[in-house]
Computed example of a mutant assay.
Amino acid sequence: MQIETVTEKQRVNAARKLKKMFGGIDYTNMPHCPIRDVMAFVSDKWSTLIILHLGYFPVLRFNELKKKVFGVSNKVLSERLKQLEGDGYVQRTVYPEVPIRVEYNLTDFGHSYLQKLIELTEWAENHKNYVINNRENFKK
């Protein structure tokens, strides 16, 4: 597989964006990193899979989501859904029925993140063989 070459223009553009992102930060007086604070949670493997599945299936109940996010425990799924709801990515709708029915779907904000996540997962899919080959060669 041939990897696309990063052009000088792309490098300069990335450097400009990173300077804007990190250039004004006073690391000595910062209690936490605002980027890490947002990205650490939403980019973990379970949250990523939850968002991708809620993007594909517009509305899912807890047990439906658990079946689709293979390997996640009830506890972790519940924790991630609460955090995603609290951060504004996911909407939880409770229906006053017996038994109670709870459905989850992405908010508009969640959909905006989903668009970026799709780009990243497409990149990963397109470059997975490159990474796997490098891993194998590194072990030798």
Rank of each mutant, 00 (worst) to 15 (best):
F62T: 11
R101L: 11
K139C: 01
Q115E: 13
G55C: 05
E122Y: 01
N105Q: 14
Q91P: 05
V42H: 01
K128V: 04
K128C: 02
K128L: 02
F70G: 11
N134R: 06
E122T: 12
Y130D: 02
K68G: 06
A124L: 04
K140Q: 01
V131Q: 02
N134P: 00
R61S: 14
I3A: 03
Y56Q: 14
G71L: 08
G24D: 06
L60P: 03
L77K: 04
E97Y: 06
G23K: 08
H53E: 12
Y56D: 14
H53N: 15
Q115M: 12
R36F: 12
D26C: 03
K68T: 09
R135V: 07
Q2S: 07
Q83I: 13
N129F: 01
E85N: 14
V59P: 07
L106A: 02
K116A: 09
P31T: 09
T107V: 13
M21L: 12
Q115I: 11
H111R: 15
G24C: 02
V38T: 10
K82H: 12
N13M: 11
E64M: 05
V6H: 00
W123T: 08
L49A: 12
R135S: 10
M1I: 01
L54Y: 03
K20D: 11
H127F: 00
H111I: 09
E85Y: 09
A124Q: 03
P58A: 05
N134F: 04
K68L: 15
K19P: 02
V42I: 13
T121M: 10
K17V: 12
R61K: 15
I51L: 04
V98H: 09
H127P: 01
V98K: 09
L117R: 04
D87S: 13
H111M: 12
R16E: 15
K82N: 15
L81R: 04
T5I: 08
R16M: 14
G23R: 05
R92V: 15
Y95Q: 12
R61W: 03
E119V: 11
G24W: 01
H53S: 13
L120D: 02
R36W: 08
D108Q: 11
N126E: 08
I100C: 09
G86M: 13
G110P: 00
D108T: 12
K9T: 13
E4N: 03
Y95D: 12
T7M: 00
H32E: 14
L65D: 03
E136I: 07
I3N: 01
K17H: 08
I118N: 02
Y56M: 11
P31I: 06
E97P: 04
Y113E: 03
R36Y: 10
L65G: 04
L117Y: 00
H32S: 15
Q91K: 14
E4C: 01
I50Q: 01
E79K: 14
G86W: 02
I50C: 03
R92K: 15
S112K: 14
G71A: 10
L84S: 05
H53V: 13
L77R: 07
G55S: 08
I132F: 00
K68C: 09
S47R: 01
G23N: 04
N105D: 08
H111C: 10
G86S: 14
K68R: 15
L120Q: 06
N137R: 07
V76Q: 13
Y113Q: 07
D108K: 13
M1W: 00
